[in-house]
Every structure is written in structure tokens, then in C-alpha cells.
Simulated scan of single mutants.
Amino acid sequence: MEYLRDVDFEKIASQVYYALERIEVEDLWDQSGRMRDGYVEPSERAWEMFEEALEPFTNELKKYLDLSLDNEAKNYCMGILKGLHRFDKESTSQFKDWVEDAPDEFFERILNDWKKACKKPEHIQEMEDFIERGLGN
């Protein structure tokens, strides 16, 4: 349990950023377009790849929420959101061009899902302050 309680949102933010930054546009090209079983729309596959890269983080957030580790869930969510924001603002990867709106959309989705699960109004206020202040920058 002690391992679960050690949530550094800056570390999570870096992990999210690098998970997204590691997606190669060549992998998107290899996994889309004309395929043996038909046609895979590149922009749709790009969104799937983006979501797949975030999945370990959203699963971990869900674990914290399921275990009622509210403070840890808040910090973990902050890390995910900061990583998404950083990717949106700093990444120069070619892959990012295929998922232009994904960082904002996933940011909102993850934030809203967390807010629905959060049982502490003070944590929601803390999150809103964190976002308003530029995500801890």
C-alpha cells in the first residue's frame, strides 16, 4: 500500500508525455491505409494509438479510485493532465499532426471522469486551482 501512496504528479506527467512522444508516425502509416482486410482510416488509427498509449495511465487512475485512495487519485490525475498538456504544447512529433484535437479531448474526458468519481469537493477545487494556475508550471 505504501508504494501506491507515493504519487509524484511531475513523474506521472513525464511518463505520459514520453509515452505519447514515443509514438512514431511510421507506425501509424504501417497500421493504416490499405490493409489485407480492407482500409483503415489513418486518422482513426492515430486516435486509437493515442488512446492505447494513455490506457496504462487511465487504468492506474481507476485503480486508485477503486481503492478509495482519493488524494493519490487526485495527484495521479494531475500528472496525466499535465502530461497531456505538455504533449499538446511542446511536442513536435509528426504523429501529433494526426491527433491535433486528441490532447484536449482526452484532457476533458479524464478530468470529467475523475470529477464524477471524486467524493471530496476540496479535491475538485484543488484540481480546478491547479488547472487555472497552468498545471503547476
Rank of each mutant, 00 (worst) to 15 (best):
M1Y: 09
M1C: 07
Y3V: 11
L4G: 04
L4W: 06
L4D: 07
L4F: 05
D6I: 06
D6S: 11
D6N: 12
D8Q: 11
F9T: 05
E10D: 15
Q15R: 11
Y18C: 05
Y18P: 01
A19G: 10
L20N: 03
V25W: 12
E26D: 15
E26Q: 15
D27L: 10
L28V: 06
D30L: 10
D30K: 14
R34N: 15
D37M: 11
Y39G: 12
E41Q: 11
E41Y: 10
E41A: 10
S43N: 14
R45W: 05
M49P: 00
E51G: 03
E52A: 14
E52F: 09
E52N: 12
E55V: 00
E55A: 05
P56M: 03
F57M: 02
T58G: 00
N59T: 10
E60T: 09
Y64V: 00
L67W: 01
S68A: 02
S68Q: 05
L69P: 00
E72W: 00
K74H: 09
K74F: 06
L81Q: 07
L81S: 07
G83F: 04
L84C: 07
R86D: 13
R86G: 09
F87N: 12
K89F: 10
T92M: 15
F95T: 07
F95K: 08
K96P: 04
K96T: 08
K96M: 09
D97G: 15
W98I: 01
D101I: 06
A102M: 13
A102G: 13
D104I: 04
E105H: 11
F107C: 03
R109S: 13
R109Y: 10
I110T: 07
N112Q: 13
D113H: 06
D113A: 10
W114I: 01
K116W: 04
C118V: 02
K119I: 02
K119Q: 09
E122D: 12
E122T: 09
E122P: 00
H123K: 06
Q125F: 00
Q125E: 08
F130L: 04
N137S: 08
